[in-house]
Design a protein around this nucleic acid. Structure first.
Lengths: 143, 143
DNA sequence: TATTGTTATACTCTATAACTATA
DNA sequence: TATAGTTATAGAGTATAACAATA
């Protein structure tokens, strides 16, 4: 019936926008937005990095990283320390509070993801996620 | 390895942004953007509507519809006619040129979609699209 | 009084340019 | 000279407010 629902980009867009809304709400009282939660997760799993390295890895401009990290620092989730190798660069490290916030946030995001796909069965959710990952991952190796 | 690739919203966002880029490029020489192509398709399949009805159906603000339709009108794809029922409203109708452009655009978009998912097999593409549609459609019936 | 289309304004998000301190 | 972080500015995209014509 609705011609839009047969359009891949429309479907992706709708679901993406809804996921942003749900995740933003889920993270609200932690004082972080979706990108900031991604940064916390990145630091928790990969370890300390400079702002520049961080931006390159998660695809955010270095000028945008600044205010993003400002917020995390104000909440005491992250500390800026001068890199021992290069005094121009900041080494970003997760505090204990930041690590706890990351874990809580991670659970909240997982819950929001389930809510987003609450009309799919468990196996369907896994399939969807697997296919999305495959489409994105192989594409990035092409570059 | 990359923690971002396990995040649903990240996968959706990456694929969505790429789809917008590919489709925008594919439609470029027709003089329409992705939203304008959606409007042409809507008019081709549903028939004449007012700007207000159009905006409500495809989720675009009525103030944004104006410039969008301006572009379509300048290309001669769409005509604004006063509604016989309500002289405040414009009835949007597709011209012959507009109908031709819609068909060409539709093929281009389909090609862009295949390119976006060129690393998935045919059945995988169908499955992905079906699951996305299910997730979006059932969600919208919940509202 | 409410609604359609329109315009102007404001607001958000992001990209660009320029500055500083280091290298 | 080039780079990390920062700041200020400009741009795209979108939402809000107000207006004229009509209901």
């Amino acid at each position: 019936m609705d011609p839009l629902l047969s359009r891949l980009s429309y479907l992706l867009g709708r679901l993406y926008m809804t996921s942003l809304t749900l995740e933003t709400e889920a993270l609200e009282d932690l004082g972080v937005d979706v990108k900031q939660q991604a940064v916390l997760t990145f630091l928790a799993e990969i370890g300390p990095v400079t702002q520049q390295q961080l931006g390159q890895r998660i695809g955010i401009d270095r000028t945008t990283i600044v205010t993003l990290v400002d917020g995390l620092e104000q909440h005491g989730y992250v500390e800026r320390e001068r890199s021992p190798h290069d005094r121009r660069a900041y080494q970003l490290t997760l505090t204990d509070t930041g690590r706890a916030a990351q874990k809580t946030g991670h659970k909240r995001v997982a819950k929001a993801e389930r809510a987003l796909l609450d009309n799919l069965t468990g196996p369907e959710r896994d399939t969807l996620k697997r296919l999305l990952a495959k489409a994105v991952q192989e594409r990035s190796t092409h570059l």
